[in-house]
Design a protein around this nucleic acid. Sequence first.
DNA 1: GGAATAGTGTCTCTGAGACATTATGAA
DNA 2: TTCATAATGTCTCAGAGACACTATTCC
Lengths: 272, 272
Amino acid sequence: MDYANVAERREQPPALAVSTVIFALREDGNVGRKTLWLPLVRRTREPFKGRWALPGGPLGARQSLQDAAAANLLATTGLVPQYLEQLYAFGGLDRSPSRRVVSIVYWALVRGDGPAPGGAGPGGALREDPNVAWYRAEDPAVLADLAFDHRQIVEYALWRLRNKVEYGSIAHRLLGERFTLAQVREVYEAVLGRALDPANFRRQLRGTPDIEATDEFLQGGKHRPPRLYRYTGDTTPAATGPPLPQHPAQAAPPRQASHPEHHPALHETDTP
Amino acid sequence: MDYANVAERREQPPALAVSTVIFALREDGNVGRKTLWLPLVRRTREPFKGRWALPGGPLGARQSLQDAAAANLLATTGLVPQYLEQLYAFGGLDRSPSRRVVSIVYWALVRGDGPAPGGAGPGGALREDPNVAWYRAEDPAVLADLAFDHRQIVEYALWRLRNKVEYGSIAHRLLGERFTLAQVREVYEAVLGRALDPANFRRQLRGTPDIEATDEFLQGGKHRPPRLYRYTGDTTPAATGPPLPQHPAQAAPPRQASHPEHHPALHETDTP
DNA sequence: GGAATAGTGTCTCTGAGACATTATGAA
DNA sequence: TTCATAATGTCTCAGAGACACTATTCC
């Protein structure tokens, strides 16, 4: 045994936190198309004071993991998630320069094509917190300046979103109650980053039973008014347990494996 | 604010644990085919004393999450994982009747068509722990008797495995260095639970560049000796950490607005 | 009518599954 | 020779993509 580092043996256990990557769809002033945006929170303390970070906080003693994620989503944006799913548990030793923190991260989709270009952002007219701001989720400059390992976290969340939208009915959670097929296609194009054939896309969507045609049409356009559709499937805002539905997406790339050497003391299975 | 429950405010924070669902492939005496097995640990204390549970334990202060998973895998089976991936973080309030525990669960694949029918199991010749035993992973009776919420955890792990094997090259991690195509097919059939057409399966496998034919043949069979193949892809024993994103994406979609309600207390972003 | 988008029809290509056929070694 | 499995070939069908074509509205 190694008793060299006595201080190490006295360390407090890793802290537990819950953070959330929140995506909304929003008109991009520069590009003129819709892009993915996310709210960030400016840190007011060290470490990374002044930098932008994902909203998050400690896990309340009487809070489920998902409740904690929804809670800091509400606190940050004033919004309720249309979709909420656990992303990953990040537990690296050096995530924070101070105390070790294990973060269980969720990702969420919210509606809201809100106002406030430089300010509150989607749905944020009510809020005037200078320490909260919305940014383009795929802006490299934004990602590069994030605190902690939040850049990796956001990039992984984007990857998950893309793989989820590929086969799932996720798009309507970024849209309103009624939508045109072209709007759904725009969501897919925004997330996947490529143009889709309108005719084939329409055929696919009409094949899914959860998208139902209404007898309304979107007026006010310059040309022929498109029919409005609505989503008739499950609209529970959050996915509770582990996600059992649908198909797989992609395999996870490897990173490294560290294997201990001998099997020292026997397993102590005193915890679930 | 509600200061009613003073005891609640004194509660210690949730404990953090890491558990692992370990799968191996093994000949089933009754059925004559290979099936999935997993090692369980008998609890020696309350709660659930005497019941079987997943191997696990607290997270060491100087241990990454995957190290902790690999460590209790080694302690339980004496084996090193051929594959290791984070499964999910379980944090329900009532998982344990005593203190609240948040478990970060990994799932693993190990090789070993080991000995010891009722005993140590795959690769377990070295160990003689009466509190460790291997069981059929899909045996309802086994699942029904597990401690805590481990039944749900194993079922979710099985679901992940099935979805992973569908398109990934996972099978070779349950096999040895060289294998026949029929063996790979057996793995798929065991995991997916259905028979596969040998001809079509062969065609698909030969299409993947990571499976390479050797000039050896498996001798000793009763009939025509099948050719041996080997895996030439990535063999890092563990795939941990989130997958790294690949492509960028763009945005451009619909129009809609939803307005939020109120915004309670402000976020406290003091943790990653 | 012209422009632009909504919406339909049709062709091809590809991959999966069903299944017939040939090859080869052991008993 | 017979048997069982290895290995290959062929047919069909369904879904995805490419793309031509019609429909409807505003200007």
